[in-house]
Amino acid sequence: MSKHSITIEINGESFTQEVDSRKLLIHFLRDDLALTGTHIGCDTSSCGACTILLNGKSIKACTFFAVQANNQKIETIEGVEQGGQLHPLQEGFHQEHGLQCGFCTPGMIMRGKELLEKNPNPTEEEIRWGISGNLCRCTGYSNIIKSIQYAANKLNEKQEEAA
């Protein structure tokens, strides 16, 4: 098994480590770096519990090699809260009861983050399609949609205040 030295910026911090070429990014994050907020639900890119951002784009870390992330930037759920301030998405999931068991929540939040960055005013239909790669077995999705709408409103308010 060949080993590779990789350097990845994760949540603003740089990590350099030797990894096996076959090590999946999800195991690198969870087992090697103890960033266990990103979960494994299916191993086949079907459920989205392992969703993270790679250079701002959401990917499923269960079907991505750690070496593929070399010299790139990753954001995980652990990096979403900034300076003790919850992200509007985190707030939204709490306020709108957008989670129950919490297992899919980190993936939903990461996916929601990219969604809102690309489309700050999504319709309900756009949110539904936008998170259709992330499965939730507890909530029936309605409150997840509301949580993302809550965050969209909040982010737009902030934008207006700044302008």
Binding site: G37, E78, V80, Q90, F93, H97, G102, P106
Partner: peptide
């Protein structure tokens, strides 16, 4: 009442079985 348990889940700080090392 908003849920007390949310605080850890929305931060990715839930502790599930596979998180035990």
């Amino acid at each position: 009442l908003k849920r007390k348990e949310d605080a850890r889940f929305i931060r990715g700080l839930g502790k599930y079985t596979d998180d035990v090392q």
